[in-house]
Amino acid sequence: MTVRKVRAPLRLLMLCAVGSGEGRSGNARGSIGRAVVWVRDRPLKQLAAWLGALALALTAPFGGWADASHPPMTVVTADQVVKTGPIDVTITRIRANTRPGETFAAMEDGQYLLVFGTARGTAKTTLTNGELADAIRLDGVPGLEKSFYTNDYLPVTKAMSAKPTVYAVEDSTLMTALVPDLTYEVAWVWRQQAAAPPSSIDVQVQGFTWRQRSLDDYTGWLDPTPTAHLRLPVEVRPPWVKPGATPSPAASPTPAATS
């Protein structure tokens, strides 16, 4: 852009703002006319770029590029049914254990956190895409493992990114899918690297949206978002000990401590 073209809009702005004293209305009309002529003379690409920049600037009073705020979460109580979309969930209790059962490796530098509850599939088809694991998250807990046996322990600010592994309580087997119209007693399990578990935990229940994903046209239950939460105390239980083994002074000989 030449120096003359840069000065021209500044001169016009000054004329529009200040005017010239006597005969101001005549000068104002002349200033506006010159401004219109000046804008009209701009190349179309330049006008389009300025309009785009103006639209971006106008977003500032409306939040700009900040994340949209989530709707407030409902506070629920233990055993209260929370509808997430494809799953009806209840949360009953939280336990901490260094070895909840035979199928779990003993933890030396932390403990397992087990959130017990129930899950009932209300969708018509079998849920096979991790919806059951995404239905529950723990907030504000330091040292949660991102997912089982990855040894990637997260800071407290990223606790919501830790994905649990879900077990059926009745037979301690993995719950990788949820069929319609069956209610299971389940445990959502995390590994935590910490000297001791928290005294209480804020458990968040996430709801889903049924929509099509634009990237690959997959249609399913997407966008897990916290919709309800409750705070429950954490009860520490003794670790599982192999029957017949000599219990350590700190451990109870009671087996299958998954409850």
Binding site: K124, T125, T176, A177, V179
Partner: peptide
């Protein structure tokens, strides 16, 4: 016939 599908799951 109502659209329910029970897959292998567990």
């Amino acid at each position: 016939s109502s659209g329910h599908v029970w897959e292998l799951g567990r």
